[in-house]
Design a protein around this nucleic acid. Structure first.
Lengths: 234, 234
DNA sequence: CGAGCGCTTGACCGGCGTCAACACCCGTGG
DNA sequence: CCACGGGTGTTGACGCCGGTCAAGCGCTCG
């Protein structure tokens, strides 16, 4: 991905045609001439962990596609506690809701170093006319977002702390390395699972002691899954 | 609504034009001639509480719009416990996900007596060509569904039992009677909030004792909200 | 009037939150 | 190179919230 994308923002949209993940994002079906019409309107942006991408309620004029890294959607409760509503990863879209409501529904914050394309909503609307199949793509993305949100409710926010942490570990496995799982700070995990970070830490430690997982890095973020069945049983 | 819809299924689509809630569902922008082309393809259906509308994983060939009543989307966990993922009400769509994935993502079950229109997906796809603005409508609906799911996570599945029950009571207020709230069986409430039904019962009783709410019916389903501030504080 | 279902209430216990101390990793500057 | 300090993770002690088990009530419908 990095090879396909320069870290400068110059002449970015022309790069879309050579983007290695183009097929899995929005513009898979566009022709070269389609691209000419949006030339120069798409920005390539980089965020560092903790950086805010946009905030809830502000005017949503752009839509973002993730090239690499992770972002979290957050709501701040009245009492100040943060609730992570969803985590987005490669080829996910940030801010689709603005297509319908003109404003963002959540705070969006980078969770890891993050590389994204920033696309004006107007471009999407233009392209609707050019590419009838873009609609289908958008629908798929929308469906995926809904699916993720429902999975979030059903898997990560149901049952005991042990179950929740186990499900998160399973969900955060690396796609092409199913026995390696990378997680977040204990505080973020707590905000995802509705648990205190001490509880998360305890459950992880318990899994390590039981031999279900083994810590790989030296910061407690990367684990090897030794006994997947135990995690599933939880 | 009942006056606009017969309980028989005969000649239903012609009725769409006179439907009193047409403006808030999908076909607001269609012309009379558009309707002619879909004549006879839309079924009007009635479900009673507890009846299953469709089940997770089955082929999704139809989309439903709710005219009156409530439906729940349910996932059954491995250990047999049910989790209510979302509740749908008037003018919501059931089964939109089938537009993208061809199958239903959850079980759908009637929560109250339920009146719906059952629309073949093919009709929706046809209408896409006829009415460019139907897309916008669909997008709004999809956005609404996503918004609901995220609200569900942020409001109803976060914090103490007291907070959750309070938020549910607030959410279930009657649109035009903001101090009246109608809820479900304690078991269903538990499946929504990830609480045991005894806990839900206790919290409700506590609110009654504190004078925050007053029971109106004799089955513990309808309450008058006396002290909204207390519910918000929770 | 009796059966059955849903709601309530109580007693008890376990899981998770709370508060606190400490270990570890890292960057910084001497 | 080491000393220091802050951020993050771990671990312990304790208390409370909510789960569990159980009994009893009230409504509805046969």
């Amino acid at each position: 991905m990095i090879t396909a994308y320069p870290t400068t923002a110059s002449s970015v949209s022309s790069r879309c045609q050579t983007c290695t993940i183009r097929e899995i994002v929005l513009f898979a079906d566009l022709t070269s001439s389609d691209f000419d019409s949006i030339h120069g309107k798409i920005e390539y942006k980089v965020f560092s962990p903790g950086e805010m991408i946009f905030d809830r309620g502000s005017a949503g004029d752009f839509l973002y596609t993730i090239h690499s890294g992770l972002a979290k959607l957050v709501r701040r409760a009245d009492d100040g506690r943060d609730r992570i509503v969803r985590v987005l990863r490669q080829s996910d879209l940030l801010g689709i809701e603005a297509l319908a409501t003109k404003q963002y529904a959540n705070d969006a914050i980078a969770l890891t170093p993050l590389q994204m394309c920033k696309i004006p909503l107007r471009v999407i609307q233009e392209l609707n006319r050019l590419s009838p199949r873009l609609h289908a793509r958008l629908m798929e993305k929308w469906q995926q977002a809904l699916q993720d949100a429902e999975d979030w409710i059903a898997d990560l926010n149901f049952g005991t702390a042990k179950k929740r942490v186990a499900n998160l570990l399973l969900r955060m496995r690396h796609p092409d390395q199913p026995h390696v799982s990378t997680v977040f700070s204990r505080a973020d995990m707590g905000a995802m699972l509705d648990l205190k970070f001490e509880t998360v830490s305890r459950e992880i430690s318990a899994f390590v002691q039981n031999g279900a997982i083994v810590q790989i890095d030296n910061m407690g973020r990367v684990f090897e899954i030794k006994d997947e069945a135990q995690l599933r049983r939880a």
